[in-house]
Design a protein around this nucleic acid. Structure first.
Lengths: 136, 136
DNA sequence: ACATTTTATCGTAATGATTACGATTTGTAA
DNA sequence: TTACAAATCGTAATCATTACGATAAAATGT
């Protein structure tokens, strides 16, 4: 996802354009991998002394709702990354060292042949963890 | 996994047999699904007034290391269940309402055909969430 | 059975991530 | 430029989890 694309979504949905929001998006754009609220706080604190937790978390949640960010939970902490450009449903390999990802286009839900008669399937999670070539 | 089987593991590994440990195991045995530390605390508090967090978490971690329990993280909270023991590597459908599970025997790692050249694959997570027939 | 040793537990405080909220500031549109 | 809604600040509260010195209890050897 491009930065201006994300800012357009914000504007179209009636949310305000702020410098902090632009900086949050540019942070995720340059980082190119899963990052925590704490990572973002450190980054923004350099420019905005005394930035509030409220701002960090409110925007992370807002961006997630707007599908600008996608998130996953690793080691008891939520991690966020810019939503992938390609629109189709997909999964990720996630590097445990640098947080960068590799898309997995095929989904196990299509490959499995299980009888879920009587069950209501809501969602699923498939992630592969390890080290990317750079960190390996 | 059977209770006496778990208690045998404890004994063989040199850990002490305590009534609390037996109660913890019988709790997971009767519950038959993923439960939190808080669930366990509520249960044990009925019998042991003033039971310590230390006891709860120390035993949950110990049992996980000994493969008596298996765990997963759901909604920011660790959940535990009796290990499926003897069975092969597998995954789970997990009911978001009652925590009960249904085993998925096939593993997506065998079904996918992805080039991970240069990557180090350490582990993976595949879970399906929804409602079981009882809760649906 | 008793003493010794080792492990388990208690009581409670600390930590880390996240959420909450009244007061204040700021973007936006009229 | 004014008015209003949204965003942010400052800070405290909450929730899950970890930590640790003091005490209790189980296992072991005599």
């Amino acid at each position: 996802m491009q930065l201006n694309q994300a800012l357009t979504i914000l504007k179209d949905e009636g949310y305000k354009y702020t410098e902090k929001r632009e900086d949050i998006l540019s942070f995720f754009n340059k980082e190119d991998g899963y990052r925590t609220a704490s990572d973002l706080l450190s980054f923004l604190s350099k420019k905005y002394e005394g930035i509030s937790y409220d701002t960090i978390y409110r925007n992370l949640h807002l961006f997630s709702e707007l599908n600008i960010l996608e998130s996953t939970e690793l080691d008891g902490e939520k991690h966020f990354r810019l939503a992938c450009g390609h629109e189709e449903h997909h999964h990720h390999f996630i590097c445990k060292s640098c947080g960068k990802t590799k898309a997995i286009k095929s989904c196990p839900m299509n490959l499995l042949n299980i009888d879920f008669n009587g069950y209501l399937i809501e969602n699923h999670k498939f992630e592969i963890y390890g080290l990317c070539p750079n960190c390996n």
